[in-house]
């Protein structure tokens, strides 16, 4: 009995809010250019080469990186390394229960993430090998793909893959003419148009841009500027997270060396 039975019907105790902008302010009290509360942590999966967990408000994403490891035989020889991305939403992550297999949207997210990260990774440093980036969205509270890309870049850094720069990504939604940064799921549901931008802020290169809905040239420029500002903010937060992780690892190593020096190992 796998997957959703065709007979059962979802029922929600609360309906989605009809309007997400009340008197020109967002429902959760943020300004139009404010992120939700951001939490980033690396090294959360003990089995993976590198991993990261990101929580932006109600969006929770976990990424695990394995590799570089041997490429699949079917993929053939390649002088450059390969990056394989896989994005999956947990069945309970969305309001309505999802299916167990991979839906079209997930395949598209995987392709978008691959384009976003490939420009940043130094693929020549692991020829003939593949780095697998597996992403699982535990709760989809809005802008899942943007959060996933940011977390994936952190996980790649945690795994020690050479990167030209950290990639950070954010989404912008246009609701009733106003541009909202880092929209929640309710805001995305009511948008006229949206865009996702992934860029490498220090090198100032855009690695991925996906837009939905109609945008005029001027609106697109405004949206891009807002998103680029958001990415710069995220970049600072991501670098801080990596610095803290490195400091913690160094402290742990120093403590272990101290303990080892005190008692010689019996091995």
């Amino acid at each position: 009995m796998a997957g959703r039975d065709a007979q059962s019907v979802p029922w929600f105790a609360e309906e989605r809010p009809q309007a997400v902008l009340a008197d020109g302010a967002r429902l959760d009290g943020r300004s139009f250019e404010e992120f939700r509360s951001v939490f980033l942590k690396t090294g959360v999966i003990s089995q993976a080469s590198g991993s990261a967990y990101a929580e932006f408000g109600r969006t929770k994403v976990m990424v695990g990186v394995y590799g570089p490891r041997q490429s699949d035989r079917r993929q053939g020889y390649s002088e450059r390394g390969r990056l394989a991305c896989d994005v999956k939403l947990a069945t309970f992550a969305t309001r309505q229960r999802g299916i167990f297999g991979q839906s079209q949207e997930e395949r598209e997210h995987s392709a978008a993430m691959q384009t976003a990260l490939e420009a940043a990774a130094n693929l020549d440093s692991f020829p003939k090998a593949t780095v697998d980036v597996y992403c699982l969205v535990l709760e989809a509270g809005g802008s899942e793909l943007a959060v996933a890309i940011t977390a994936a870049a952190l996980a790649l850094a945690d795994a020690g893959i050479e990167l030209f720069d950290l990639v950070s990504a954010c989404s912008v939604s246009r609701v009733e003419g106003s541009l909202l940064l880092d929209p929640s799921a309710d805001e995305t549901h009511r948008e006229d148009g949206g865009l996702l931008l992934a860029m490498m802020p220090t090198v100032n290169e855009v690695t991925q841009l996906v837009s939905r809905g109609q945008w005029s040239g001027a609106e697109l420029k405004d949206g891009l500027e807002l998103a680029m500002g958001g990415c710069a903010q995220l970049d600072a937060a991501a670098r801080q997270c990596l610095r803290e992780a490195a400091a913690a690892a160094a402290a742990k190593q120093a403590a272990e060396d101290g303990a080892a020096a005190a008692q010689p190992a019996a091995a």
Binding site: M1, A2, D5, I45, Q47, A48, S51, M62, V63, G64, Y66, R69, D86, K88, F100, Q102, D132, Y134, C135, L136
Partner: peptide, 16 residues
Amino acid sequence: VVQVEMAPLCSAECRP
């Protein structure tokens, strides 16, 4: 209905 999925990120042996 109880279903278990070993997400590919849980271990090096798992694949999507």
